[in-house]
Design a protein around this nucleic acid. Sequence first.
DNA 1: ATGAAAGCGCTAACAT
DNA 2: ATGTTAGCGCTTTCAT
Lengths: 339, 339
Amino acid sequence: MNIYDISQKAGVSPTTVSRVINGSDNVSEKTRAKVNAIIAETGYTPNAFAQGLGHDTMRTMGILCVDPSDSRSCPSLSNAIGYIQRELRAHDYDAVIYCVGYNMAEKARCIDDMLRRRVDSIFIVGSFFIEDKEKNNQCILDAAEKTPIMLINGYLNHKNIYSFLCDDAGASLQAVGHLLDTGCKKVLFLHGGMSGSEKRKLDGCREAHASRKLVFSDDYVHECPQGVAEGTKFIENLAVGGLKFDAVFATEDSLAVCALKYAQKNKIHIPKDLCIMGYNNSVQSICTSPELSSVDQNIESVCVTAVSMLISRLKKGGVPTRTIIASEVIMRETTRTKH
Amino acid sequence: MNIYDISQKAGVSPTTVSRVINGSDNVSEKTRAKVNAIIAETGYTPNAFAQGLGHDTMRTMGILCVDPSDSRSCPSLSNAIGYIQRELRAHDYDAVIYCVGYNMAEKARCIDDMLRRRVDSIFIVGSFFIEDKEKNNQCILDAAEKTPIMLINGYLNHKNIYSFLCDDAGASLQAVGHLLDTGCKKVLFLHGGMSGSEKRKLDGCREAHASRKLVFSDDYVHECPQGVAEGTKFIENLAVGGLKFDAVFATEDSLAVCALKYAQKNKIHIPKDLCIMGYNNSVQSICTSPELSSVDQNIESVCVTAVSMLISRLKKGGVPTRTIIASEVIMRETTRTKH
DNA sequence: ATGAAAGCGCTAACAT
DNA sequence: ATGTTAGCGCTTTCAT
């Protein structure tokens, strides 16, 4: 069943059928009605490949992201997939998704697939995909020659690449600043592996100390293992090892949960003797008791902004190469209040 | 830059270039090397539309799912997206994703888009999409005329539709049975809205009572509002209203968290005076103290099985129309142990 | 308002 | 091992 079959049944030319399908004005109401009737009756569905060949676009974007089922993946970034996709659909674009787990080898292959599909743009979600070594980012730079690249919480300074960042440095500055201003002296910085985003958080933490003329030692920066039990044990070992801290700044709520469990296990009172600040404002932050104070990255705004800027970019509008969206520190029960 | 440009530069026919691209054997090493060199040098990328037109497949599946960023969406089903996509890629299929939120009006439109794209199959993730009224499922049945439909935790008895179900009834039977066998007398059944999957859980709960000759009254079935604060309040009101219960079976971990908060707020000892069983074995189940006992739906196995059966179906193999994968009850700290 | 004809970039059947 | 030719199903000039 193709456009010729329909045109024959309707007694019109394929061109006219095409006009009806694409909602062109130059079709009489009568003809339109007849063609639509045939289409409905036969259950005909236009072939998107052929449409794509003609239009040279299939109105499709590619999304490259970390597998949401991977335990190490940041939950707010999984939500990003939904946000981006929803916004794209509002503009009549579909999305092909590539979840690649933490296996970087697939990155280039995925990007190549997207280019074969002539996607109108590529979204890369998460700073994880942007590597330190210039050369490992080459496939991204190459792809930018052919299609605009939208980086969600990642940054790369290059033509046709647009970055949309959570203000991780600013949020960390504010969050750690709050800890210091409410009496905390020694902040333990817990992270889950140093991506670009984590580095910015560490910068913010350092800045919070520096601007208060306080010392922040690298001895207080630790990578915490995955898993609640492992993480809790790890923190306990730090304490047993002699590290003194009265606050934990975790770059991920799941790590904050570990800190909380460590405190409860050791009968350390929260927030009197230990303050905990999480990150991502995930479901986890509200299911503990006490509930976790946490940084909300405002991922939804980041995604909405990215899509709307992409649309204007596709209309040949000018778009800034780097946009930073403010995050927000949500105070709950694991931090003290200023007086 | 197309296949003709390449063929010209390489001094061979387009067919030969096509052979090189598709890895055909019938090409001399010399020619292959030359063509590959030109391809690399020019940065040529084959056009997938045109390939699709020729092959009449673009090796793409469609995934229809609930927006993972929607708070009501089940977290294990969001993971399903990653699992399905990963398995498909292993078989060299890509996936177009359609996250539609709880706005059912879009369902038909998404399915239609997938058909235009001539997807090789459609995955529908979640019983939410399968409605009670036959007529509302019509677009799914129609789509099944054109492409196989894979239902993840949903069931529809129809040609070319294959169902892959978590054993929600069985798991609930076992989970509630455990509550009853460890001394609980009155089980409060909390759900978040009655989808097909929730109904099966309720069936299991009823069966657990019936098989033990115990009475289970509908007064103990309640829909709990979204949100930790609201849910906790809701349960408290039930208790204040005079409902007596010594166990909660929640169809979602987030609801179990509410039950836990209710208990802690009212100084009810867990599990001595109240047992709580959650569902989905989500991150939430391990970040509370005490940690939640919960049902693991084994979504990964469900997805892996669905994809592998789809692949064999596409090879014209016979595939059962309905496959049920066992779930597992994970005992943690909110339930008692049998002695 | 409608139609005829020429592509879009690739693959496949059939030569050679 | 390589080339020729004819589509795949649609859109888009350009006529009428």
